[in-house]
Design a protein around this nucleic acid. Structure first.
Lengths: 131, 131, 131, 131
DNA sequence: TTTT
DNA sequence: TTTT
């Protein structure tokens, strides 16, 4: 079924990089603050605080390049899970699993490109189009 | 900031229609089961169970036309809230506020159109395009 | 950069399956009619007619299961190209390259499952979650 | 039906603001260059060049705050039109009608907030939630 | 006709 | 607490 989420916002804290215990896969998690485009009854502009999960290569890119306050774009999907607390209560979690994270802050002058491109293998090839 | 969610899935139960206590605005809530397009290690196809909130006119359309098992498309945004339990614990809630709900089940023969169109006022008009 | 498109609509014709001349990769193309949710000044409900391109395995699934009038959900990205006409004019084309196509028509009774699931390799694994 | 597009990219030129001849409604148009996240066979990173249309109040905001090279996020829908050339050929146009444009460049120090918030009337109200 |  |  279709499950697609796109967000642009800022990290509330530095991202956290971990590795899965059994298979050693990189996972980075952070919360994205996405300001709403309307103000509440107190005249403040509220935000939604969305938990983000990133896997593998992109997890490590995120841990390297994102910090508290960084502007990021997320293209992913909603995932729901449940777990049981030590006190025996079932708790439900909703989070966004990112397929793609874009770093939207301006590039630092003395650095290099902060987002690597990857090669096109396994993708369609412009040079061989049938129409 | 950008906050956009698109889902297609099936209602896990009949929708629930309520009215806000102070202002009497219609709100419908339901959970959408969105099957994943991969199978888990047990070979089952899992799903994500996403809480949906619909306001006003569309809330009433949903209550009229959707039932447990109905196929629906949702175009909306993520919203997070927190509340305190009677036991004094802060709990976090993530839900999708629908801007637009599409009813994707085949139309019943003897019924009419099950999704009303609305007029175009307040929208741009094809007949007056400047280019 | 972020480039995401989600559509639900119906095929205006049967899909066309071809193979790229050099590399023999399957490509299916069709047009999706996406009705607008407002009516025009004549009180008709208009539609947008969106060209869709699907590659590889999904191209063949689409050619097998979709027909004129089929309801389909598309998750993909916008792609623009230019080409030169035989008369030497440059022409610009916009189309949607589908990452994922969902078949939304009700399943036929005597058939089987019309959308194959695929295994989870190369994806994160629920059973090994670090938090 | 569902028709949703989200893009992040940079303007290829300054935006153009016009007014519809009959009704005097503001319309701004520009092209958004959305870099692809893969490189082509020449090792260059390509882009898609997407025509954007913005109406009314947001049209004027865009004309005021966006320039060639500005980073912008677009939340909108695909629209297709056809028109006949003076030479009597039918030509097809695909463009994105923006519901929402976000200005993603860092704010200038000496300016103010460059994106106005608007009040919440006609929206649901957090303080009156039924559950 | 294309942006960083 | 989950749908086909």
């Amino acid at each position: 079924m279709i499950n697609r989420v796109v967000l642009v916002g800022r990290l509330t804290k530095d991202p956290e990089l971990r590795y899965t215990p059994n298979t050693g896969i990189a996972v980075t998690t952070f919360t994205l603050a996405v300001s709403r485009n309307f103000t509440n009854q107190q005249g403040e502009r509220d935000a939604d605080f969305v938990p983000i999960v990133v896997w593998r290569t992109q997890a490590e890119h995120c841990a390297n390049y994102l910090r508290k306050g960084s502007l990021a774009g997320i293209d992913g999907r909603i995932q729901t899970r449940s777990y049981d607390t030590p006190e025996g209560q079932r708790r439900f979690v909703t989070e966004i699993v990112a397929d793609n994270v874009r770093f939207l802050d301006p590039k630092q002058k003395s650095g290099g490109d902060n987002q690597e491109s990857y090669s096109n293998f396994g993708q369609e090839v412009d040079e061989d189009v049938p129409f």
